[in-house]
């Protein structure tokens, strides 16, 4: 985070679309800001805090903007700063929020599991995961990411938060447990439920949409 990237030297006038110029490209900047806001809101579920995090991340990125020749590299960099900001906010929040706010509904979860597995612990036929290697595999189109978004939004709040801390911010299990005052087994079961939901949602919404049609009454 703190490493300072060397700023491009002079004498390379030709084709130098520097990050500073990139950040003056208003259309790019407006879009980038929207994307960051969406990402931050998803995790923080608080518009003001999301705005602040995005603002700070952009300001931080601006300092080093010169070292980015491509918009894609700049986007990755800005998002990595944003991840740190979000982690900071979540860390601070842990002291302020009551953990009860993050309760999971056990009845709902039981019903969800019963919908997937029979009493012997085997997959119900219609719910068996299929291979994702079909024509839709590996395609990360814009449409795919909209499905992904919708699936994330469909997660119960606690599962979404834990999943994003683990997989977006890449926090270690111990740190998540500490921040949210969860036991290790509680963390594991929460991640398990989130992954079960996400994979089912992606399979029905993207990889095997025909399967979803068969199942719907």
């Amino acid at each position: 985070m703190t490493e300072s990237v060397p700023v491009g030297r002079g004498g390379m006038e030709a084709g130098r679309a520097s990050g500073a110029q990139t950040l003056q490209d208003t259309q790019f900047l407006t879009e980038l800001r929207q994307q960051m806001l969406k990402f931050a809101r998803l995790q923080l579920r608080d518009d003001d805090q999301a705005e602040d995090a995005v603002q700070e991340a952009l300001a931080g990125a601006l300092k080093n903007a010169d070292s980015f020749k491509r918009q894609a590299a700049l986007r990755t960099w800005v998002f990595s700063i944003l991840k740190y900001k979000i982690a900071d906010i979540l860390r601070y929040r842990q002291r302020v929020i009551a953990t009860s706010e993050l309760g999971d509904d056990e009845h709902r979860e039981q019903a969800f599991m019963d919908g997937l597995f029979d009493s012997g612990g085997h997959w119900h036929k219609a719910e068996r995961p299929s291979s994702w290697s079909g024509p839709q595999g590996g395609v990360h189109s814009d449409h795919f990411w909209r499905v992904f978004d919708a699936c994330l939004n469909g997660l119960p709040e606690k599962q979404a938060r834990v999943f994003m801390m683990r997989e977006f911010i890449e926090l270690e299990s111990e740190e998540i447990c500490e921040q949210l005052t969860l036991s290790t087994s509680n963390l594991h079961v929460t991640l398990y439920r989130a992954r079960l939901r996400l994979r089912a949602c992606l399979e029905n919404g993207w990889f095997e949409p025909s399967k979803a049609e068969e199942v719907t009454p």
């Binding site: 980038l32 994307q35 960051m36 969406k38 990402f39 986007r75 990755t76 800005v78 998002f79 990595s80 991840k83 990360h140 814009d142 990411w145 992904f148 978004d149 999943f163 994003m164 997989e167 977006f168 911010i169 890449e170």
Partner: peptide
Amino acid sequence: LARSYAKGEGNT
């Protein structure tokens, strides 16, 4: 997928 998404890839 989650890691790509967190790099802003899902948001191009």
